[in-house]
Write a protein that binds this DNA or RNA. Structure first.
Ligand SMILES: [Zn+2]
Ligand SMILES: [Zn+2]
Ligand SMILES: [Zn+2]
Ligand SMILES: [Zn+2]
Lengths: 169, 169
DNA sequence: TCTTGACCTGTTATGATATTACATACATAG
DNA sequence: CTATGTATGTAATATCATAACAGGTCAAGA
């Protein structure tokens, strides 16, 4: 691993909406994915790796069938399970997230960091930013606890306008 | 409106998981729905009203096709748009909510109260409770604001075990 | 070496969720 | 009563997701 990961591009918060070196951003995420899977013994096979690369191309969410079309065009299988299985693997490994509101998937920008993600979805440019939801998650858990409810998984998403698209309205 | 709405059954928080007079609970919600729609001029037609009654039967989320089957059995149309349109109306009027995680709909238990709902979804008994999400929502908006993102709609849902089902595990 | 078993990939088929487009009915304002 | 907007009904289609099974790869263990 040549990159010791101490570069300015990675430090910026809320990367997705800000101008940033996305080539670095995505390359870095891929490298971390390789390191992580190597460490846990999970197998980042060619389809899975390629699916992740596709998700990493942009800070958007892609539907399973979008990913499938891309994979099929590159010689992988062209039936839905091919995409769903690769995406399921990525989600399980914490390398991608499912965006419930869009029935779609987006690459994780903090792989391996054990974070509570919230997603900010721009309804104009469809950019999806991964924000920190630990505060919201704590509030939600506190409220759930009052009802005796034990939280296992949370979905925290916001739909609205990103800073770039706000300016144009 | 005979009911002046000052009864113990309604005051309890987190109704869905607690034992409560659900006949009252649902009857009350329906009455409020009528008052609200009358006040705004929205038309709570027979299909729409019936769809709401169906959602109110239990504190669960029903898929559009479940609602459709019920409606069709009672003489309403049996094509998907019949259900989707009625549900869309209810959601627009704040009489029902969509549960993104389940691709399903649940009746609002606080119609007309302008609240920020979070949903607690039991993975065992499939009960869906509507909790207060104002804290979580504020955290989320604060985080979004740091990124310059303007929140318009939020999805805040938790999947886990309700107090009743926890006891049995 | 051969076999076994775990896992991955691929395919067919089907199921589940949701929308578009168009036709008909029905209210109410003019 | 007639025009207009709104609501309902239907057919057709689009989109999202899974079940079930077949074949391939690879490494552990007989
Ligand atoms: Zn980037
Ligand atoms: Zn935008
Ligand atoms: Zn109730
Ligand atoms: Zn339960």
């Amino acid at each position: 691993m040549p990159d010791t990961h101490d570069c300015p591009g990675c430090a910026a918060p809320d990367l997705a909406f800000a101008a940033h070196d996305h080539a670095h951003c995505s390359h870095d995420a891929l490298e971390r994915a390789e390191a992580l899977t190597a460490a846990t013994g999970a197998r980042l096979t060619p389809v899975r790796r390629r699916a992740l690369e596709i998700l990493l191309e942009e800070h958007k969410a892609l539907g399973a069938y979008d990913v499938l079309a891309r994979l099929a065009a590159e010689g992988f299988g062209n039936q839905p399970p091919v995409a769903y299985r690769a995406l399921e693997f990525l989600v399980e490994q914490g390398l991608a997230h499912r965006i419930q509101r869009l029935n779609a998937f987006t690459a994780c920008v903090h792989p391996g960091e054990d974070h509570a993600p919230a997603f900010l979805i721009c309804r104009a440019c469809h950019t999806v930013a991964e924000a920190e939801a630990s505060g919201a998650r704590q509030s939600l858990e506190a409220e759930a606890a009052r009802a005796g409810f034990q939280v296992e998984r949370t979905t925290i998403e916001a739909l609205g306008l990103c800073p770039n698209c706000r300016g144009q309205a």
